[in-house]
Design a protein around this nucleic acid. Sequence first.
DNA 1: CCCTATGTTCCCAA
DNA 2: CTTGGGAACATAGG
Length: 260
Amino acid sequence: MPELPEVEILKRQLIQVISGAKILKISILDEKLGPPINLAGRTIISLSRKGKELHIGLDDGNTLLLHLRMTGRLLWQEDSALQLPHTRFSITFSHGRLDLIDPRRFAHFKVEKEPIGSHTEAMDPLNGFSVRLIGETGRKKKLPIKSFLTNQRLIAGIGNIYACEILHAAKLSPLRKTCDLSPRERALLADSATAILSKAIACRGTTVSDWRDLFGQKGEYQDCLKVYGRKGEPCPRCGAAIERLKLAGRGTYFCPACQI
DNA sequence: CCCTATGTTCCCAA
DNA sequence: CTTGGGAACATAGG
């Protein structure tokens, strides 16, 4: 469920709440997440985001890697009595508890020794995303531009909702072949991605079903969506009816009149 | 029962 | 090798 803006919000809130804090206990309540681990006594020394993945650095050199996938969410609980259904792990601190809640159990969690170790760096749309990079990587790609945008090995963090919105802002059909984009179109695409993701972060994410931030609050960006989930409604830019098609198994919303 | 869902991975076919 | 389609993972909701 969370894409780049939502994970960025969680990261910033976690920095406020658990940066420098010491772990008292960690309970893995779903064996699918991995074997029990003992992190008692470890201190959180860093928090970062890579695409949709959260990296929690510990003082013993280990890093906790968390990917929320479709329905995972993190919740900061100060009332220790409250435990929501589908809670999959709890990390207890002296001043509260961090819970992972995940009905569909798709979330991934692992402990890694490597401090940084990445081989193929995907571009981050908020850091180093440029027309030049879209050009270099996309010039040879014949896949639809929407598939290019959502391919995490090429660009880290854009998911289904924001891909639809970015393509609408850039006036590009989701089916356009990536290699066919002109320099002007690539520039508009890069600008649109930066603008939409930044605004979504400023709006604290998109709550169309169950996204909540670390404190259980909804986002605001759902009120800014132009095409996602709006099949049959008029395009805010040109008035034509929004269409929906299926691309790579995902619902894809676009305006057939002004996205070409 | 049908379909849908903010994600990723794997298998198979063209 | 590249691309696309479909299924799988597991659960809730319309």
